[in-house]
Simulated assay, not measured.
Amino acid sequence: MSTHTLEGKNVLIAGGGKNLGGLISRQAAEAGANVAIHYNSESSRTAAEETLSAVEAAGRKGVILSGDLSTPENVEKLFADAEAAIGKLDVAVNTVGKVLRKPILDTTEADYDAMFDINSKAAYFFIKEAGKQLRDGGKVITIVTSLLAAFTDGYSTYAGGKSPVEHFTRAAAKEFADRGISVTAIAPGPMDTPFFYGQETPERVEFHKSQAMGNQLTQIEDIAPIVRFLATEGWWITGQTLFANGGYTTR
C-alpha cells in the first residue's frame, strides 16, 4: 500500500495555481504525478499557466481548470474535467480558502455567507466528490488553519468557517475507509503569503512571528512536503488534523 513517490498518479489541486497550491502542483509533478490545476478567478490565470508550464517541463501531463467551488455543480464538473484530461484521480488536495479579519460587531450577513461558502461548503462538497471519484487507495487532503487551536480576536468567520472541515474529515475518513482512502487536514500557522499580510498590522505580524521557531511565519515550503508525505507513505494517517506551525499553537 505504501509508496514513496507519486509516479504515475493523477492529482487534482484546488487552488493549485499559485502560492502554496502552486508549489504543491510543482512538487507533485517532480514526484511523478500528472496534475490538474484549479484556479478560482481570471486574476489567477497567469500564475496557473506558469504552474502548468512547470508541470509539463517536469515531463508530466497537466491541465488548468477554473471554477467557483462554492457551487457543488462546479465541484462535480471540476472532478469530471480533471479526470477527462489526466485520467482517473488518485489524490485530491483542496488549498482553497478565504481570509477575513473583522470584529463580530462589524461582520455582515454577506461577509458570513461568503466566508462559509468558500471555507466550509466548498470544502464539504470537494471531499464528497473526492469520495465518489477517487480510485481505491486515494488520498483527500484539505488545508485548514492553526487558528482552529488558537484563541484570538478578529477571525470568527475564518476560523469558524474552517473548523467544520475537521468534522467533515473525520466522518469521511470513516466512510471512505473501506476503499482505503485516507482523509486528512493540514493546519499551517500564519503563512508568508499575500493572503496573510492584507489582514494584519505590522505589529501583529511581528507577534505572529514571535510565536514560532526561528521568529518566522510558516513558509509554503514547510507545508508542501507534508502534503506529499500524506499522499504517499503517510497514507496510514487518516481522520487527523496536523498542526504544522513551528510551535505557534497546539491543543
Rank of each mutant, 00 (worst) to 15 (best):
K132W: 07
A159F: 08
N119C: 11
R204C: 04
G189I: 06
F196V: 13
T107E: 05
Q133I: 04
S2L: 14
N19V: 15
V140N: 04
P194R: 11
D111A: 08
T157N: 08
N19E: 15
P103L: 14
A150R: 13
T169N: 02
T193H: 12
M1A: 08
A85R: 00
T238A: 04
G16W: 07
S44W: 13
G247E: 07
F243Y: 15
T169I: 01
A84S: 10
K132A: 10
F176M: 03
Y197A: 12
V183H: 04
E109S: 15
E49C: 05
A54Y: 12
T46A: 15
T157Y: 14
S43E: 14
D178G: 10
D106Y: 13
H208V: 11
Q211F: 00
M213W: 15
N10G: 05
A231N: 10
G239Y: 04
S210H: 06
S25N: 06
Y155V: 10
A159L: 01
S120A: 15
F207D: 14
K77M: 05
A187D: 12
N10P: 03
G21Y: 10
L12D: 08
T5C: 02
T71E: 14
V91G: 01
K88P: 06
E233D: 09
K9T: 00
F125W: 10
A172Q: 02
H208G: 11
A173L: 04
Y248T: 07
G214F: 05
I220R: 13
K61P: 12
I127N: 07
R101H: 13
N245V: 05
K18W: 15
E221T: 11
G32V: 00
Q240D: 09
L20N: 05
R26Y: 10
A224Y: 12
Q216K: 13
F125G: 00
A92L: 09
V96K: 01
G137V: 07
T184L: 11
G137F: 06
T107D: 03
F168I: 02
P164K: 00
F243T: 06
K174V: 14
L230V: 03
G59M: 03
T142E: 14
E7C: 11
V227Y: 08
L20C: 09
G234S: 02
R170F: 04
K132I: 09
R179I: 12
G154F: 00
I186G: 05
G87C: 05
A130L: 07
I127T: 11
E203M: 04
V96I: 07
K209W: 11
A36K: 00
E109C: 11
N94D: 13
S163T: 09
E49H: 03
I24F: 01
A54E: 13
T184N: 14
S43Q: 15
E49D: 11
M115N: 07
Y158N: 06
L100F: 11
E30S: 06
H4V: 15
E175P: 09
G160R: 01
G32E: 01
R179H: 11
L89Y: 00
K9S: 02
R135H: 14
T250A: 12
A14F: 13
T71W: 08
A173D: 08
A84R: 11
G22H: 10
F125T: 01
F116Q: 13
K128P: 04
M213Q: 14
M115F: 10
L52G: 06
A31H: 00
L52A: 09
D192S: 08
A171D: 12
S2R: 03
V165Q: 06
G234Q: 03
M213F: 14
A31D: 02
F229D: 03
K174G: 09
F151I: 15
A171I: 14
Y112P: 10
P164A: 03
